[in-house]
């Protein structure tokens, strides 16, 4: 039974993550009064790209060619640490969120290097900005984890999330709200949504994530798109596990709540994208530092309570 559950977790995550981008786009279209693309568009895109050939630049080395594979495998590894539906992730050990954060950092490192490999100034721009954002978003994640660890007294992701339940919300409402807020901002940054980056365009203003994959084509691009959707799923599941924690013994109802939470976070992202404009590039560190201070406030609230 346990193995079946794990298999279901993996398959659900792999199958459902491209749906998130579709939901976001659909909600944005509703906001804009359009019909918008199909919810399943990313699936079609990935399939189309997998059947295409590729064009490689003359300046690239082997690193560029294996980077998408590395990025996808690292992102899937990170996704397996995240809890699913109130249950353990496939991989769980004390201190795993450190490992999780650094695996994502590794995939970002590989992406930056593959972007710089092309000797293109566009991709260099994206890589430089990506590196800068990472510097400011890492402390946000760790501060949120510190606060969560202090609330629940655990140091593994599953340990933390298993201790979260509605009664904890009643007691710790302000702390958890602030944490959800800062984790939401973190999700916007890591998944490259407005206000950090506009995934719709490739203009210079928004050259961050989209531009780093400008020279990838065909199956490589399919891998990378899939990896970014999984990354979105990861962060959405963090938020879902905090806002809708439910740990009854019935796996199916827990799953439904979990998926509902993910759906809700995708809708929230879409709403944010529709009402906000992209930030000026120089303001991004300040915004991330604001998120960091929100986490710090949450921590201070927590410490002075108990």
């Amino acid at each position: 039974m346990e193995n079946l559950r794990i298999l279901f977790q993996i398959l659900a995550m792999l199958a459902l993550s491209p749906l998130l981008f579709g939901i976001i786009n659909k909600v944005k279209a509703v906001f804009a009064g359009r019909q918008g693309r199909s919810v399943f568009k990313l699936y079609y895109d990935i399939y189309k790209l997998l059947n295409r050939g590729a064009v490689y630049s003359n300046s690239v080395t082997a690193l560029f060619k294996i980077a998408p594979v590395a990025i996808l495998s690292l992102t899937i590894t990170a996704a397996l640490i995240v809890p699913f539906g109130g249950q353990k992730g496939v991989i769980s050990f004390p201190g795993d969120f450190i490992f999780f954060s650094y695996i994502l950092a590794m995939s970002r490192f590989v992406l930056i290097l593959s972007a710089m490999d092309t000797a293109s100034s566009f991709e260099g721009m994206g890589a430089s900005r990506e590196a800068q954002f990472a510097v400011f978003s890492e402390p946000v994640f760790f501060m949120a984890m510190i606060t969560l660890s202090k609330i629940t007294g655990q140091i593994s992701i599953y340990g933390i999330f298993s201790r979260l339940n509605p009664s904890l919300w009643v007691v710790n409402a302000p702390v958890l709200t602030l944490l959800v807020f800062s984790l939401f901002i973190l999700m916007l940054c890591e998944a490259a949504r407005v206000p950090f980056d506009d995934p719709e365009t490739h203009l210079e203003l928004t050259m961050i994530h989209e531009v780093m994959i400008l020279d990838n084509s065909g199956p490589d691009l399919a891998y990378i798109l899939y990896a970014s959707s999984i990354k979105m799923w990861i962060f959405a599941s963090f938020i879902s596990s905090i806002i809708l924690p439910r740990h009854s013994d019935i796996f199916w109802s827990d799953c439904l709540f979990y998926l509902a939470g993910i759906f809700l976070s995708a809708v929230a992202v879409a709403v944010t994208e529709s009402v906000m404009a992209r930030l000026r590039l120089l303001r991004v560190p300040h915004f991330l530092m604001a998120a960091f201070s929100v986490s710090v406030m949450a921590f201070v609230f927590q410490s002075f309570k108990g």
């Binding site: 059947n51 590729a54 490689y56 630049s57 003359n58 400008l214 065909g218």
Partner: peptide, 13 residues
């Protein structure tokens, strides 16, 4: 995938 696909080389975009 690449064994069946068309791979070409060009300059960087």
């Amino acid at each position: 995938i690449f064994s069946k696909a068309l791979v070409s080389h060009s300059v960087t975009w």
